[in-house]
Amino acid sequence: MIPVNTSYVSGVALSEMDGEMKMLLMKRVKGGFWCHVAGSIEEGELGWQAIVREFQEETKIVASKLYNAQFLEQFYEENVNVIELIPVFVVICPPNQNVELNHEHTEFKWCTLEEALALAPYPNQHAVFKHVWSYFVDKPINALFRVKV
């Protein structure tokens, strides 16, 4: 039997950078790979509250325009024999959003979809980024996805 863990959330920040929509990727200290914002849900928090906190802690981005991406990141973590199911959120940032990284990341980059796919190593990240780009950049954002913060 493989247990399922649902104690994490993740989020993708989007900002128009110099007139072109981009998504935020950061290089993790642990593992040295490129990723989006993610973290644990703390006791007493709802999932959306956790991602708002994580954005603030990891990037200093205030997640005031928050959306449920309608997507679950999912993967098998072999070292602990757990299937991770992680709800994904999207934060629409003001143009040319500033980022201040905490100790968990060494650098960041605002990326086009193609750049993000080239940087991120995992297929599940690619699925997240393609989904987010399709529903939050290529199409008008569905108002039903909005999370009241």
Rank of each mutant, 00 (worst) to 15 (best):
P3K: 00
V4S: 08
T6H: 04
S7N: 14
Y8Q: 10
A13K: 01
L14A: 07
S15N: 08
E16K: 04
L25T: 14
V29S: 09
K30A: 14
F33A: 11
F33D: 10
E43I: 15
E45R: 11
W48L: 01
W48I: 06
A50T: 02
A50R: 01
A50D: 00
V52K: 14
R53N: 00
K60E: 13
V62I: 15
A63G: 06
K65S: 12
L66E: 09
Y67Q: 07
A69P: 07
Q74P: 00
Y76C: 09
E77R: 02
E77C: 13
V80N: 11
V80W: 05
N81K: 02
I86K: 03
F89T: 15
N96F: 03
E100H: 11
N102Y: 05
E104G: 05
H105V: 04
H105P: 10
K109L: 13
W110F: 09
W110S: 09
C111A: 09
C111T: 00
A116E: 06
L117G: 02
A118S: 14
L119K: 12
P123D: 13
N124P: 03
H126E: 12
H126C: 12
A127M: 12
Y135K: 03
F136V: 04
F136E: 03
V137M: 08
K139D: 13
P140N: 06
I141D: 03
I141W: 05
N142V: 10
L144A: 10
F145L: 12
